[in-house]
Computed example of a mutant assay.
Amino acid sequence: MTTLSPYKAEFLKAAIDGGVLKFGNFELKSKRISPYFFNAGDFYRADLLRAISTAYAKAIIEARDQTGLEFDVIFGPAYKGIPLATSTTDKLAALDPDAYSQICYSFDRKEAKDHGEGGNIVGAPLKGKRVLIVDDVITAGTAKRDAIAKIQKEGGTVVGIVVALDRMEKLPAPDGDDSKPMPSAIGEIRKEYNIPIFAILTLDDIIAGMGSFATPDDIRRIEEYRAKYKATD
């Protein structure tokens, strides 16, 4: 059985204890009925915010150590990405001040401001900067493509994306036949933009860590869901 690294196990426990990761029957945008649901918007309590920012920071440090990931600005797409970007920037500087005390954060407005300083971006300027996007999940990929386009329009270069959860789930088939092999949204964006995408947790991680808190029925249902909808990449 796979053993989760300590930071992943701590994050999974916080998500369960805080009601961020729930088990049951949940209808997704794709109309699939999922046996679990993860909502990073529920990390609004101080201890939970600390848990998720710590997990993002440790995932980023791990990615740096394993792949050489380097960046100047952390970008959080509005709205859920805004607290994630700001809190992760602070946590990185606390965990590794030598490497990260000078990094910056930015986020976008849903609508451009037409007075004062104006523009679409709040925080650090992106021109000429290496930008790391942080967000909760990638579902269809539309929001991430919009964020990448905004960053590129401002003159920044996207060097990676970090998400809280990779559902490892294939995109719906155009003809509605879910038995067909299909890629995931993460796989499509990774291939389309040639950028790395990192996740704090994957569905495999959730299943690996479920034994200590989930019922056998929950575990069985999630394993069946994974088998039915797992992506080709």
Rank of each mutant, 00 (worst) to 15 (best):
A112H: 01
A147T: 03
P183K: 07
I189K: 07
L84A: 11
F37Q: 08
K8E: 01
A143Y: 01
S34I: 06
L201P: 04
S53H: 00
I16M: 08
L28A: 06
I222L: 15
K180I: 09
G41Q: 01
G118I: 13
A93S: 14
Y229W: 08
L28V: 09
Y100H: 06
I82R: 01
Y225M: 10
E154A: 14
T89D: 07
K80P: 00
E169K: 07
S179G: 12
D42W: 12
P6S: 12
E10F: 11
Y193T: 09
A124I: 10
L21S: 07
T215E: 12
Y105W: 13
L48W: 13
A173W: 11
H115A: 08
T139L: 06
L171I: 15
Y44G: 06
G141S: 03
G76I: 00
E117I: 11
G209Q: 02
I121A: 00
G18I: 03
I52P: 00
S179T: 14
R45E: 15
A15L: 06
R130L: 10
K13C: 11
A149N: 09
G18L: 10
K191P: 13
I16E: 03
R226Y: 14
D136A: 01
D72I: 02
P196H: 10
L203Q: 11
F213N: 09
N194S: 15
L48N: 09
E224D: 13
I82A: 01
K22A: 13
D204S: 14
D205W: 03
K129R: 15
D233H: 11
F75A: 01
T86G: 13
S5T: 15
R167M: 11
A143V: 03
T139I: 01
L165H: 04
M1A: 15
S87I: 03
S184D: 09
S101K: 13
I121P: 02
L28F: 14
R109M: 06
K13I: 04
D175H: 04
A227N: 12
Y229V: 02
P77E: 04
L203M: 12
D108V: 06
A214Q: 12
K170R: 12
M1V: 14
D178G: 05
T88L: 01
D90A: 14
R109E: 08
F75L: 02
V134L: 03
D177C: 07
L12E: 03
G209C: 01
A173E: 07
T67D: 15
D108I: 05
P196D: 09
K91G: 00
R145H: 12
L126K: 04
P216T: 08
A112V: 15
L95H: 09
P183Y: 09
E223Y: 12
